[in-house]
């Protein structure tokens, strides 16, 4: 699929970006939530998106797997442009995993079934194989012993780890995290972040909306700051935190750090 190239070329490396967002706008009725978003993500790149609430950061990553529809511009994920075409949307969704703030596990299915439903029905993996895959990822998120329980029976931190494992079972090329630790009790945040750090070390392409600045410093290749629906500033984590360029960034950092 050929796409119109913008004047800006990726600054890092010469590999093809896995996500390209070009001049993307989004409105809720008259409200302009996302304004001229341009973003390129290289394979294996880890990006942290931060910004005040209502700045459009969640909306932006939700556009990447089409949970939200954009009205102008282009979003190209792994060579597939997101349009109204349902085939494309489904293809992109199988390649992009998403972890939500409120976990969104399926409460009527056991944890194991939560993990196998995607592989079995979307990837057509045989049940037995899907269960082995699920157990493998439950071990990676360190809760294999909970497989037969229902989501309601485990703690919030464990639920979020199950949610991460559920996405991983689809073997996605990209993982999106929408404030994965915001709904957790403080003592459970670390166990989830640890899993995410492991994932980053494995070389997963990740876009993480979070306020965990410690995570951003240790893991991110790039930090993006959004405000009022715009990308205000983006930089490497050290430069971003130590030497913010923009007034709005400075104000935001002074409030959260």
């Amino acid at each position: 699929m050929t796409t119109e190239q913008t004047s800006e070329q990726p600054s890092t490396g010469n590999s093809k970006p896995i996500i390209e967002i070009i001049g993307m706008h989004k409105w809720y009725d008259d409200f302009h939530v996302l304004k001229d978003i341009n973003l390129e993500v290289q394979p294996q790149e880890r990006i942290v998106v931060c910004g005040p609430s209502g700045s459009g950061k969640s909306t932006m990553i939700r556009c990447i797997n089409r949970l939200e529809e954009h009205q102008r511009g282009q979003i190209i994920v792994n060579g597939t442009e997101l349009t109204r075409d349902l085939k494309n949307i489904e293809r992109v969704r199988t390649e992009v995993g998403m972890v939500f703030q409120h976990f969104n596990l399926f409460p009527h299915l056991t944890i194991l079934e939560n993990l196998t439903v995607g592989p079995i029905w979307v990837r057509k993996t045989p049940k037995k194989e899907a269960e082995e895959l699920a157990m493998h990822y439950l071990e990676i998120v360190r809760i294999p012993e909970q497989a037969q329980k229902y989501p309601g029976q485990v703690s919030g931190g464990q639920q979020q780890r199950v949610a991460i494992a559920r996405s991983l079972c689809m073997k996605p090329k990209i993982m999106l995290f929408d404030e994965p630790t915001s709904a957790l009790d403080p003592e459970m945040i670390k166990e989830v972040l640890d899993v995410m750090v492991d994932l980053a070390r494995e070389g997963m392409t990740m876009i993480v909306v979070t306020h965990e600045m410690g995570f951003a410093k240790t893991v991110a290749d790039r930090v993006i700051f959004m405000d009022f629906g715009e990308i205000v500033e983006e930089n490497e984590p050290n430069a971003f935190f130590d030497n913010p360029q923009h007034e709005r960034t400075k104000l935001f950092l002074s409030q959260i750090l």
Binding site: R93, T94, M98, G118
Partner: peptide, 21 residues
Amino acid sequence: KGQYEAAESLGLNYFQMMRLI
């Protein structure tokens, strides 16, 4: 709404989402 979103983000199509989730 999160149930719909989780099902969709796994790549389940409409009928699978309705039937299974």
